[in-house]
Nucleic acid binder design. Sequence first.
DNA 1: GTCTATACCGTGATAGAC
DNA 2: GTCTATCACGGTATAGAC
Lengths: 195, 195
Amino acid sequence: MTMPKRDTYTPESLLAVAVGVFNERGYDGTSMEDLSRAAGISKSSIYHHVRGKEELLERAVGRALEGLFGILEEPAARRGRAVERLEYVTRRTTAVLMDELAYVTLLLRVRGNTPTERRAMERRREFDQRVADLLRAAVTEGDLRGDVDARLATRLLFGMINSLVEWYRPDGRGSVDGDQVADTVVRLAFDGLRR
Amino acid sequence: MTMPKRDTYTPESLLAVAVGVFNERGYDGTSMEDLSRAAGISKSSIYHHVRGKEELLERAVGRALEGLFGILEEPAARRGRAVERLEYVTRRTTAVLMDELAYVTLLLRVRGNTPTERRAMERRREFDQRVADLLRAAVTEGDLRGDVDARLATRLLFGMINSLVEWYRPDGRGSVDGDQVADTVVRLAFDGLRR
DNA sequence: GTCTATACCGTGATAGAC
DNA sequence: GTCTATCACGGTATAGAC
């Protein structure tokens, strides 16, 4: 309710700062010292907002997973021919990656060193599985080529989409640029490079 | 010349162990303690073979880059239509990724925290640039579609290929399995998922 | 809500015996 | 070539004043 007069950190606003640093230096490569410098407050003040470094990671990957699983709940991902649903999910996943870039980046880089990380990886695999099922259905319905392994194809599809976090940087205004990226991803994935 | 009777470490054999641990736990997440346990020797013994942790990283990414740039020197990557050279480079890059999996994995995960890492990233960008040039040439020669940005397409192509390090694990004997992966990568990249 | 001060531990690295 | 012992440092986290 209260509109804060000055910038005092909430767990949420601190998270935004932390995620930025995590992605620059890597989670393990980031010290609380690094975070405190980036946030402009002392190390110990951070502990006033969150229980520790790992809680920041947990919140970040949670947000990313929320965005991804949200796609599967959207109507267009649940009705119609499988190939069209797959195309929709491909486009939307690309969009979510760009919208929640920092959070998804962190999710994709998690290695499984802690229980938090392992849970995140498991949920991510779950999402991949759901898309693989969709791709399989599209093959069965005769819209996608049957001469590629569905699991392999899904992995390569996600490889393409997920690579966004390595190079995509939001530019000026609007989502025009983002739409072009999503178009290209869909075009390449479904129709290939060849003329 | 001398054939060692027992297993005593060389910088090379120690590197193989280290790269495995780096990829499991992440470079920053790996302590010398971790390495010593994996190698079965004490921390200080490691310093007898290499100058430190960073030298191990340097050797590893060096080996990966050697493999990648080697591709561009091969005859089939230097003669003929651009589209065929690009197809060849795509297939060979996939193969090198699988052959030198651990080393390339490490290279792809480098974040730029140290001078060593930054040099590695620069060389990698150089390689990407060379492939982007090839793709551009293939568009000019009329073999690839002109409605996608060459730089963007190259990034997505590498996204697909490089994702191998996230899931590919060498199986039983022979490169049969690997050939199938390379075939699928080329097919998907050039002709797409659609039937 | 932020600070200073500090506890306590694991880190990368070295010295020197065997 | 490997070890034990040790170092200085920086890491996460806590205590308690303001």
